[in-house]
């Protein structure tokens, strides 16, 4: 925690206001009972008391549920294609939880891998991710099992920790460090502050009781891949909705559609879900017509295929898929129930 700073809670609004001069500041807010990241209103910091995580993961700021890729208009000479107006405003997202911050690293790899995705990457380049350490994790959180944790900083530029009257502030990335270093509202944190933060983080970590062994999940999934009866059983209660994928911080499948009226309109991309029976129906049919194949894909993508390609597990343990699932399908239970490698029939 070297060089850490702090800010008094009553000064947080001031700090955010300062940042608002250079950035569009987003912060957790709540409307209609739905927690979300929204343009900060200039005063409200009550989220420090109620906020645990948003319903939509932070990915939706970078890979929005729907976005225009270009517009199509018509004139005498034919059709005209225009990219959306370029936006150069920097964006500072305050209060990103460690699990969501980590998801951005996992997504970055995908969107700069085979080709560079200008839409996603541009938003990422313009953003500052300010994390907020979890002090009150949910019973569905299992971040500590997937290389993260309530105090993990991966994917953040700056990390805040609530230590009572103050918030401890740490620059994480180069960008973040610069932003913190030059700021006059921030005071130098004392030893006591740092110790308090340490204790709070340990306590938070202890609160996470949902744990799974992911050490050889890749191998175990590989071994059970063809075991239809296993997957049939595991998928029986799933209703193939889009909740666990659309709202997963690491799921990135998208679909592209034209929204046209009278020869004009736009080409849009929107999130898609491998749980849908209509997934990839556009070229032909869904190769995973059976539900068990789709459930298998969801799990294997996160715990087998992605790790094969990019070394990391593509799950950050945010627990949304457990909390929000209509039937309480629980990914941790399923991972736990994977037969050990040698038990499998194949």
């Amino acid at each position: 925690m070297a060089d850490s700073k702090k800010v008094r809670k009553e000064d947080l609004a001031g700090l955010l206001t300062e940042w608002s001069r250079d950035y569009a500041v987003l912060a957790p807010s709540r409307a209609d009972g739905v927690a979300r990241m929204a343009a900060w209103d200039g005063e409200d910091i009550s989220f420090l008391d109620w906020y645990r995580n948003t319903i939509n993961p932070v990915k939706s700021l970078f890979l929005p549920p729907v976005e225009e890729m270009f517009s199509i208009s018509r004139n005498e000479r034919g059709h005209r294609i225009e990219l959306p107006p370029k936006d150069d405003t920097g964006c500072l997202v305050f209060g990103v939880r460690p699990c969501d911050a980590r998801s951005l690293i996992l997504l970055d790899v995908v969107f700069e891998d085979a080709y560079e995705d200008p839409y996603y990457l541009d938003r990422r380049r313009r953003s500052i991710v300010v994390g907020l350490c979890c002090t009150n994790p949910c019973d569905s959180c299992f971040c500590t099992s997937v290389d993260s944790g309530p105090a993990a900083t991966a994917g953040m530029d700056i990390m805040f920790t609530d230590i009572g009257d103050n918030l401890l502030v740490e620059g994480i990335s180069r960008k973040g460090k610069e932003l913190v270093a030059g700021n006059a509202t921030l005071a130098k944190a004392t030893r006591t502050d740092e110790n308090r933060a340490r204790k709070i983080r340990l306590a938070a970590e202890k609160k996470i009781t949902r744990k799974i062994d992911t050490g050889d999940s890749k191998e175990r999934l590989l071994a059970v891949f063809e075991d239809e009866s296993f997957w049939q059983q595991v998928s029986a209660k799933c209703v193939s909705c889009g909740v666990c994928t659309l709202l997963c911080p690491t799921c990135y499948c998208f679909d592209i559609n034209d929204a046209m009226t009278g020869g004009e309109g736009s080409r849009c991309r929107s999130l898609d879900s491998c749980a849908f029976s209509s997934y990839t129906k556009m070229p032909m049919e869904n190769p995973r017509a059976d539900k068990w194949r789709r459930v298998r894909n969801k799990l294997c993508h996160k715990y087998e295929f992605y790790p094969m390609l990019f070394d990391n597990i593509a799950c950050t343990g945010c627990g949304r898929c457990i909390r929000l699932c209509p039937v309480n399908w629980d990914i941790t239970q399923v991972l736990d129930s994977l037969p050990a490698k040698h038990e499998s029939k194949i």
């Binding site: 739905v34 549920p65 909705c241 909740v243 659309l246 209509p326």
Partner: peptide
């Protein structure tokens, strides 16, 4: 206004 935030997850339909 309510449906502005619909995610089209189709949970309502699928349950």
């Amino acid at each position: 206004n309510e449906f502005r935030r619909c995610t089209r997850c189709y949970a309502c339909r699928n349950v």
